[in-house]
Design a protein around this nucleic acid. Structure first.
Length: 723
DNA sequence: TACTATTTAATTTTT
DNA sequence: TTAAATAGTA
């Protein structure tokens, strides 16, 4: 057997991992150290050299995209298709299991997957229906609570209210939410994992069967597994399984989503024989960039400890630019981008990273002005679009009449005279009889209700039944095409004014194409329609179909994880923005922000620019901030500060209300107060003026005091000393 | 029921 | 600032 193709191009540590004996192994893989390569080569090694059948392998990735990429790479390496190899996300694999064993899992055969948006709608409706004082309960928080419990593997009955009425109510919401889902055959993302775990836990013979089949378990991005995923993995591994997990504790940035870095340590405890391999040689960045990243991350306490090194050269210093405000910052970035592009570099090799999406706007405006093509990552994905979800809701209702989530979504879209009152009647009937909205609709229609309302319902019920009949036996794409026509959705969006309606119709037509191109897994015994619906929920699709123009890449630092670019800008590096205000007080939160910063820095291969603004307009208010503490953590000798160009028209500070709001005197100006001015207050001590408003006797200032925080004071009474 | 005015809140995101 | 949700009006 010639193992050259698998082993050549691997360094010592990588080779150790790839060729490790079949025992539990933990690979700590620093940024740019060839993590994915180790994983794919390991799989190839197992199949080609160890003679493991592809069917005996289970590989888990973080995203669908990563899964597809990994399969491609393995096939390239082995020069053969590996269809029977299970590669997927935790959710994808759990879904597969639940489809196969729906009965044992206690699910209806045609259960539907709901996404976060569907979930929130259900919760909103639930809050309204329970007649609690709805102001106190934000749907988002309930949703967060429910998902957090599920991520920990906890059912409502496992939860103790701790005699806290607040918590008691949350648990009650969770309980009722679950009932709604169960009744409608709906499974949310966290539920996929939880059910799959319970399925194995409660059906030992099934577990044993899978344990026999999957001896080798390979996990990517291990630092981002949550409790239920880890528990699932441990169940499957049992005593005989051989887990091979790869992760980087310094790149764990999804704690807020239930991910626990601690699983890395837990892994070493649970699999006591596990060896550890560290990949510390970095093939991506210059030494300067790595040194900067190392210096920053060194400030975190809970680390396994590792130091990235490279054989690459010193490279350029990290450049830091202090902008006056966010527009100046954007101008600076665009200037550098233009030079980059003019020097013959690909625009797509440059990335502009920021902490939060809202920051992209100013950058985009500047890019448009400069006529530089760009692409923003993130945002609405194809299957998340309103019109697409509407169409899917019709399809789901055809497949599964009891799906209340879909029912509510489209019962009156397009409008067919089923208003709030009729809906309420149906809801209360459904609640009283613990039945689905579909059944309730039938009952309410024949019962006492205004003739108009009841005939409207009948029209709707007949419509769905007729669509189900008419699409029966058709090809998937014909079904989709029929439904978008017969539902009246196309007609409905045609009436929508402006370009928006047109785009929607185009998207619906695109949905037909997507259905045409959809190839269901022949191994799964679902109807094509159900397979398509699951696919739509599980894989929301790309944001924009990437017209592969050479574009500057804009994205959050989170979505930059796993990517690399020769030229990187990290923008908005200010305390309060990054680290974000909401994480700053909590040491755990701060460490996660620092890891995010580490991720950002290590995206850069050659050049790294870090920018911050002294003044930033955020939420419509001008505010001042210090440069991010992370900047100070980079040693001076790695840094080159870029002095602002002379002759730049510095925004006039004495008019902080922003230039020329015609006729109005800048608030505070008459009293000689300006934003950023340091002041002293008799009681509160020293502070900085953050904001001014009002005129004359009513003028107010917002002051951030060093000792007591932010206060709003009436200037006329505050007796501030200017300093 | 549809449109308009007002209020409110505002990380990060994949599944 | 602005987007979205809610309340109020035609």
């Amino acid at each position: 057997m010639d193992v050259t193709p698998i082993l050549e191009s691997l360094n010592e540590a990588q080779r150790t991992a790839v060729t490790a004996p079949p025992e539990p192994l933990l690979v700590i893989a620093g940024a740019g150290s060839g993590k994915t390569r180790v994983l794919t080569h390991r799989i190839a090694w197992l199949i080609d050299v160890e003679g493991v059948s592809p069917q005996g392998l289970l590989a888990v990735t973080f995203t669908n995209k990563a899964a597809a990429e990994m399969r491609g790479r393995i096939e390239a390496l082995l020069q053969m298709p590996v269809n029977h190899l299970w590669i997927g996300t935790f959710h994808g694999l759990a879904h597969r299991l639940l489809r196969r064993h729906w009965k044992e899992a206690g699910l209806p055969q045609n259960f539907q997957i709901i996404d976060a948006d569907d979930q929130q709608r259900i919760i909103k409706r639930l809050i309204k229906s329970l007649e609690v004082d709805d102001d106190r309960w934000a749907p988002r928080e309930i949703q967060y609570f429910i998902n957090a419990q599920k991520d920990e593997g906890l059912r409502p009955q496992h939860l103790d209210d701790e005699n806290d009425p607040n918590r008691r109510q949350q648990i009650a919401f969770y309980h009722q939410y679950q009932e709604i889902c169960d009744r409608g055959g709906l499974v949310d993302f966290a539920e996929l994992l939880l059910r799959a775990h319970e399925l194995w836990r409660d059906t030992p013979e099934l577990l044993a069967q899978y344990q026999r089949r999957f001896r080798h378990l390979l996990v990517d991005e291990f630092q981002d597994t949550n409790a239920i995923q880890y528990a699932w993995l441990r169940l499957l591994a049992g005593k005989e399984g051989v887990p091979f997990v790869v992760g980087d504790d310094d790149q764990s940035i999804y704690r807020w989503r239930g991910a626990r870095v601690e699983h890395i340590q837990q892994f070493q405890k649970d699999f006591s024989g596990a060896s550890v391999v560290k990949l510390e040689q970095n093939y991506r960045s210059t030494e300067t960039i790595l040194d900067a990243a190392n210096a920053v991350i060194r400030n975190n306490t809970a680390r396994l400890g590792k130091n990235l090194w490279t054989e690459g050269g010193q490279g350029e210093p990290v450049r830091i630019y202090s902008a006056y405000n966010e527009r100046d910052e954007a101008e600076f970035v665009i200037g550098k981008l233009r030079t980059w592009s003019e020097q013959g570099n690909a625009r797509a090799d440059a990335a502009v990273l920021y902490r939060s999406n809202a920051q992209s706007r100013v950058l985009e405006e500047a890019l448009i002005n400069a006529r530089l093509p760009y692409r923003v990552y993130g945002g609405l994905r194809f299957f998340e679009r309103q019109e697409i979800k509407d169409a899917l809701a019709y399809l789901r209702l055809i497949s599964h009449r009891d799906d209340d989530s879909s029912f509510e979504r489209i019962v009156n879209k397009p409008t067919r005279g089923i208003g709030a009152r009729t809906l309420e009647a149906m809801r209360s009937y459904a609640r009283a009889n613990s039945c689905s909205m579909w059944r309730a609709a039938g009952a309410v229609a024949s019962n006492a209700l205004s003739g108009r309302a009841s005939s409207a319902i009948v029209v709707f019920l007949n419509l769905i039944e007729r669509m189900a009949r008419d699409t029966d036996g058709l090809d998937l794409h014909e079904q989709v095409d029929h439904v978008i026509q017969a539902s009246g959705l196309i007609e409905f969006f045609r009436k929508e004014k402006g370009e928006r309606g047109e785009t929607r119709i185009e998207n619906l037509e695109e949905l037909v194409s997507a259905a045409k191109g959809f190839e269901p897994d022949p191994a799964e015994e679902m109807s094509h329609l159900d397979a398509f619906l699951s696919h739509a929920a599980l894989e929301a699709g790309e944001g924009q179909a990437d017209a592969w123009e050479d574009c500057v890449q804009l994205m959050t630092m989170h979505s930059a994880k796993g990517l690399e670019f020769p030229l990187v800008f990290m923008c908005g590096m200010e305390d309060g923005l990054f680290p974000h205000q909401r994480s700053i007080a909590d040491p755990n939160g701060l460490e996660e922000e620092r890891r995010l910063c580490y991720v950002g820095i290590t995206r850069a291969k050659e050049s790294l620019y870090i920018t911050h603004a002294e003044q930033r307009r955020l939420h419509g208010m001008d505010s001042f901030a210090q440069a991010s503490r992370f900047i100070a953590e980079i040693p001076d000798e790695l840094v080159e500060e870029i002095r602002p160009r002379v002759q730049v028209s510095r925004p006039v500070h004495s008019a902080p209300g922003r230039r020329g709001r015609a006729g109005s005197v800048a608030p505070g100006a008459e009293l000689g107060v300006r934003l950023g001015q340091r002041v002293r207050h008799g009681k509160f001590g020293d502070g900085v003026i953050l904001n001014c408003s009002g005129q004359g006797a009513h003028a107010q200032v917002e002051v951030n005091f060093e000792s007591v925080g932010t206060k709003i004071l009436v200037l006329a009474y505050a007796n501030l000393d200017l300093m």
